[in-house]
Amino acid sequence: MEPLLDIRDLSVEFATPRGKVKALRRIDLTVRPGRIVGIVGESGCGKSTLVSAVMGLLAGNAQVTSGSIAFEGRQLRDLPEPAWRDIRGRRLAMVFQDPMTSLNPVISIATQMIDIQHRDDASRGDKLKKAIAWLAKVGIADPEQRIEDYPHRFSGGMRQRIAIAMALLMNPALLIADEPTTALDVTLEAQIIHLIKQLRSEFDGAILFVSHNLGLIAEICDEVVVMYAGEVVEHAEIRRLFHSPSHPYTQLLLTCDPARIESEERTLPTIGGTVPDLAHLPGGCIFAARCPEAFERCRAEAPGTYRVADGHSVRCFLHADD
């Protein structure tokens, strides 16, 4: 099947007073229609930079230095801003991390939801009806009344439901959810995940689900991309990744997931060492300094991407076929 989103060899740099920070390096990522792809990694691994690059919302000091982003067969890199705006909202939509700040506090929900349909020729009444229908779909009780309220009248969970409704309102081909449950407590998190699963029947697009939580990823994703320090280190079907993780980092990540620890211990296991300075990258493998299995070659040269199985690739010399 033709991929919906096809990222090839994408590199992004930030100009900072300390020098150039190489935030993303040679990223390959493919999302096929209707699939839910998870992106997992520690804070600062470049997940958010990656989704910003896809949305065309990179900060002013960021620059795409190589690679390509194809969306629905159209090249997005270096797209002029008006063309970007045409794609955003209509074909590409996004749900943000903090529902308390992602809605404008001084404008009513109705106004905000009508406002984002500005490209449609429908009447105001139709737009309002559509907004109310979507509020109902995301589980807002009494949507006809509540739509006139201001954001501060809603709880965090409700707001995230509204944000999802707003993102899906225009029926995008790809929904990017950037840690949509991180700011919520555990019960609400479960409700939102349940909602997303449930909405798959209403919405036939693909989802790019960003999280640092492997458990959530396992629950809703079809496939997963593991990122470390600005690189994709492993890409696999969700089951394969959990059953046979191939990159030492993925393996460590799985042992550190509290949900998967079976024995009772007083301390949580951690990965030793720290993430390398992206402004002054070491030679060799990016994970070599922390890798328990690193050998000579890992410190000398950077590994390429090696195929382990169908739809399973890894950036590690342990699986080198050369």
Binding site: M55, P82, R119, I176
Partner: peptide, 14 residues
């Protein structure tokens, strides 16, 4: 810099 502006831009606002 607020998220709701970013969110609006993500939904296609110029």
């Amino acid at each position: 810099e607020t998220e709701f502006v970013l969110a609006e831009r993500a939904l296609g606002a110029g």
